[in-house]
């Protein structure tokens, strides 16, 4: 089992922002399983949204890590606990 170390905490508002993006990304991924390019208009909307959501997602982590200066490692990842707003290094 991977080790987890508590390295910080975000505010509930910041948590809400990343949780919404997390949910949206999951939703888009599952939508991608059923949408085909036959439905051109919606497919295009999906592809565009996936790109935008992914960027916003990464931007959040970049912004927060700069703000809070969390401890990190070369191959490590940060994780958030949505219930507690805690950030873990794994």
């Amino acid at each position: 089992m991977a080790t987890r170390k508590l390295v910080g905490q975000v505010t509930p508002e910041e948590r809400n922002e990343i949780q919404m993006l997390f949910e949206r990304r999951n939703g888009l991924n599952e939508l991608a399983k059923i949408l085909t390019s036959d439905n051109a208009e919606l497919y295009e909307k999906l592809v565009k949204d996936m790109g935008e959501t992914s960027t916003k997602f990464q931007n959040w982590w970049n912004r927060m890590s700069q703000k809070y200066l969390w401890e990190g490692t070369e191959n490590g990842n940060w994780e958030i606990n949505f219930d507690t707003c805690e950030i873990f290094l794994t």
Binding site: G27, L46, D49
Partner: peptide, 19 residues
């Protein structure tokens, strides 16, 4: 469920982000 996913997305419904 497929219809729900498509329609929530197509309509930009706020529930697409939380269902």
């Amino acid at each position: 469920c497929d219809y729900l996913k498509i329609e929530m997305f197509r309509r930009d419904h706020h529930w697409f982000d939380s269902y």
